[in-house]
Design a protein around this nucleic acid. Sequence first.
DNA 1: ATGCTGACAGGAG
DNA 2: ACTCCTGCCAGCA
Length: 121
Amino acid sequence: MDHFFQQVYELVAQIPRGKLATYGQIAALLGRPRSAKIVGWAMRSAPCELDLPCHRVVSKSGRLAPDYAFGGAGKQRAMLAAEGITFKVDGCLDLDKHLVRGWPGKLPGDLPFLAGEVDCS
DNA sequence: ATGCTGACAGGAG
DNA sequence: ACTCCTGCCAGCA
């Protein structure tokens, strides 16, 4: 398993309950702002046994993962709802409301749930 | 080593 | 507002 995946897992694992993060954000935090796909792929390959809140990772568009993930978008939606996440009337996620602080835009070090996890060596 | 794929993102139609 | 096309990067056949 590549180091990148490891990073993704740790990052995702530290997402606070009731918060949302986008693939792009995670990718950017790992130094690959263009590798959002890789993050998604990591999720896909990420074993649920790791207790990874993959359901808290959504697309920038507020669009939930495809139907085949989480056993159905409806399932993920329910999980998020249980976490305290709210949805828009159209069914899309309310990113602006639950997205992890101001990830994109905030300076490194002011990372929300990381707070010491990232060692900018 | 080469090519295909993908749980994305962003711009264009 | 929605859908389609292209770009990007890391794994896997």
